[in-house]
Amino acid sequence: MIPQDFEYSAPASLKEALELIATGERKILAGGMSLIPLMKLRLAAPEHVVDLARVPGLDYITESGGTVSIGATVTHHDLESSPVIRGRAPLLAEAAGHIGDTQVRNMGTIGGSIAHADPAADYPASLLALEAQIRLVSAKSDRTVPASDFFLDAFTTAIEPGELVLEVLVPTEEPKEGYRYEKVAHPASGFAVVGVAARIKKAGAKISMARIGVTGMSSRAFRALEAEKLLESGAGVAQAAATVAEGQEANQDLYASADYRRHLARIWAARALSVALSRAS
C-alpha cells in the first residue's frame, strides 16, 4: 500500500504555510491519521502536501478570559492529558481519550480531525455541546466560525479554499457543571457508531442549562436542541433523551441500521445525561 508521488513542503512559518495553500490543490498534513491511510489506499492523491509540523507555535493550550484556546496541531494525547483541558474543558479531554488508540492519539491533531470532519469522529459532539468556535485563517482572512456552522455535512466543513484551522476556542466549563462523553465504538474501526456529549448545569435541583452534541448517527454531528429545551424546562432525562434523534437522518452500515443508530443515540444520550447530571453540583 503505497501512496502516489507528491510534492512536499514543510513551511517554517504560518505566513509561509498560508501562502503555500493559497493556490492550487494543496493538501494540509497535520498528524496524518486521516490523510495518510487514504493516501496509502490511493483514495486520496494530492499533488502537493503542506506539512504543518514545522510551523512553530501551533500546539498551544492556553486559557484566558473564560476561553480555552487550543492550537490546531495539539495532539489528542496532549489534549487528553493537559491539566488546563482537564480542569477547564474536561468534556473535551474525555472525548479526546476516546479517539482511535494510543498511537493515533499521539500523532493525530485536533485541527486535522475537525478539518477532516468524519461523520463518526469524536470531537464534533463535544465541540457542539461546548459551543466552541473555530478560527480559520488564510493569507487574506481571519474569521471565527461557531462549531454549529462549521460541520456542514460528511467530510464537509466551512473551511474555504486557502484557509486552515488555526485554533479551537472553547468557553470554559464551570467547575460545577456536569459533563460526559459516551460512545459506542465500532469494534473494528473504533469510530463512533454513536457518540453523545452532554453538559448539564444545575440551579438547585433544576437543570438550568443542557447541551447535547451527537456524532456518528448522522452525516454530520448535531446539537439535540429539542432535548436541551426539554431538560431546561423541567423534563426528565428519559423524556428528553427520547427526542435526540428526531428530525435527523441516520446513517446505516454493516454494523448498525438507521433505526438501530437512532435507538442507540437515544439510549446513550440518556446514559450520558445521567452521568453528566450526577457530576453536576
Binding site: A10, L29, G32, M33, I36, K40, V104, N106, M107, A188
Partner: peptide, 29 residues
C-alpha cells in the same frame, strides 16, 4: 495492515508510540 489499525509497525517517536506505516519519513526529519 494498510489502514493504521494493527500497530505492528509501532516505533517510538520522541518517546511516544506511533505507527510508522502512517507517517512519511520526511515527517521524522
Amino acid at each position: 495492515c494498510e489502514t493504521s489499525t494493527c500497530g505492528a509497525c509501532t516505533v517510538m517517536l520522541d518517546g511516544k508510540a506511533v505507527k510508522s506505516c502512517t507517517m512519511f519519513a520526511v515527517q521524522a526529519d
